[in-house]
Amino acid sequence: MTYTSPIPQLGLGTFGRTGDAGIQAILSAIEVGYRHIDTAQSYDTEGCVGEAIRRSGLPRSEFFVTTKVADTNLSKVDFLPSVEKSLETIGIDQVDLLLIHWPSQNDAVPFDDYMLALAEARQRGWTRHIGVSNFPIALLDKAFALLGEDAVITDQVEIHPYLQAPRLVSHCRSKGLVLTAYQPLCKGAVNDDPLLKAIAKSHGVTAAAVALAFLMAEGHAVIPASSSIENLKNNFASQDVNLTADEISRIRTLDRSARHINPAKSPRWDD
């Protein structure tokens, strides 16, 4: 499947990478070759991302930086000031992608308020692109109706071999919308999967690399997280794994709607 999104297809998740150890983990990833770095207001890693980028010595233009507005900052009074604060914390004038992290729970904040604020952040030049995270089909369609189908460039959701979200994937493909997979390794569970291990052996890579290669072959962007230099390198190698049509078909059979990230504030999922 041809990938045409402006989002680099392989990125780095930074949840849990805080403090000096977090900065070093992100810097190690940069040294491996990662340039798409994903953070969020609620991760407390925006400052670590900015510091790692500065320490790398590479120009800002080399990086694709994503952050997310927390659901606690969606109101009119909080939204734009929170984005300004994120830019200050990261130490940059503009992010490459700004997302709504979670939709407002029980309509506590009107949908139009925060989606229009997201669009305004782009109009102000604070972000190159906008998108959403954890949005089901119904909310995606509301966003398209409000902002236009070309405005939102991704929906960042939990996807991995055990949660392939066929309904959401089909709908987004029909709209030309790329999904960004967080938790793409299912918290490391893929490493022990017999099928993935067998396929990995034939390619000379890890089961995790096969899982990532599968998701990318399905047209998704992926943002695995790790602090291990070995895992960072193994995950990065997924870009060079060319799975056969048969291998892709076999991995598709692993789907069992096994969702791990499902807090009380979650919307009604499609899959």
Rank of each mutant, 00 (worst) to 15 (best):
Ser202Ala: 15
Gly22Arg: 03
Gly13Gln: 00
Ala217Gln: 12
Val32Pro: 01
Ile23Tyr: 09
Gly13Met: 07
Pro161Arg: 00
Ile159Thr: 09
Leu168Glu: 03
Ala181Met: 06
Leu87Trp: 02
Gln156Asn: 04
Pro8Met: 11
Thr253Trp: 09
Leu195Met: 10
Gln164Cys: 04
His203Glu: 10
Pro8Thr: 13
Ala21Pro: 01
Gln41Trp: 09
Asp93Glu: 15
Val132Pro: 00
Pro103Gly: 06
Ile153Ser: 02
Glu120Trp: 00
Ile7Leu: 11
Glu84Pro: 04
Pro194Trp: 02
Ser226Gln: 07
His220Glu: 03
Ile23Ser: 03
Ile90Ala: 00
Thr39Asn: 05
Lys68Thr: 08
Asp107Met: 06
Ser133Tyr: 07
Pro166Met: 08
Asp270Gly: 02
Val132Thr: 11
Thr127Ser: 10
Asp150Glu: 15
Gly219Asp: 05
Ala189Gln: 15
Tyr114His: 03
Ser266Asp: 13
Leu118Gly: 02
Gly19Pro: 09
Arg250Lys: 15
Asn242Cys: 13
Ile26Ser: 05
Gly219Ser: 06
Thr67Val: 07
Ala108Trp: 11
Pro136Trp: 01
Lys265Tyr: 14
Ile229Asn: 06
Pro110His: 07
Ala108Asp: 15
Asn262Gly: 02
Val241Ala: 05
Glu149Ile: 12
Leu179Cys: 05
Val83Phe: 07
Glu149Gln: 13
Ser202Trp: 01
Gly57Ile: 12
Ala209Tyr: 07
Phe236Ser: 07
Ser5Met: 05
Asp141Gln: 14
Arg35Ile: 13
Thr72Ala: 12
Lys201Asn: 12
Leu97Cys: 10
Pro267Arg: 03
Val69Asn: 02
Gly188Gln: 08
Gly19Cys: 08
Asn106Met: 13
Asp20Leu: 12
Asp240His: 15
Thr127Asn: 05
Arg250Thr: 15
Leu232Val: 00
Ser170Ile: 06
Asn235Gln: 04
Gln123Leu: 14
Lys187Asp: 03
Arg55Phe: 01
Asn134Ser: 06
Val190Asp: 03
Asp78Lys: 15
Gln156Tyr: 10
Ser174Cys: 02
Phe214Asp: 01
Asp150Phe: 04
Val157Cys: 01
Arg122Trp: 03
Arg55Gly: 07
Asp96Gln: 04
Ala209Leu: 05
Leu10Arg: 04
Leu168Met: 08
Arg252Pro: 01
Gly16Asn: 04
Ser28Cys: 04
Ala189Val: 13
Leu185Asp: 09
Asp93Asn: 14
Pro136Lys: 01
Gln9Glu: 13
Pro6Tyr: 10
Gln183Trp: 12
Leu87Asp: 02
Leu195Ile: 13
Gly148His: 00
Arg122Cys: 12
Thr72Lys: 01
Leu10Phe: 08
Arg173Gln: 15
Ser257Arg: 15
Ala198Phe: 07
Lys187Phe: 13
Val241Glu: 06
Val190Met: 01
Ala211Gly: 04
Ser104Cys: 12
His220Ser: 09
Leu177Ser: 03
Ala211Val: 00
Ile7Thr: 11
Ile251Cys: 05
Pro110Val: 14
Ala145Glu: 14
Gln9Asp: 02
Gly57Gln: 08
Pro6Asp: 05
Gly22Met: 01
Lys265Arg: 12
Thr45Val: 08
Asp44Phe: 09
Gly125Ile: 14
Ala245Leu: 15
Lys265Cys: 14
Asp96Cys: 04
Thr67Gln: 09
Ala237Trp: 04
Thr2Cys: 01
Pro59Gln: 08
Ala258Thr: 08
Leu146Cys: 11
Glu31Cys: 05
Asp246Cys: 10
Leu116Val: 14
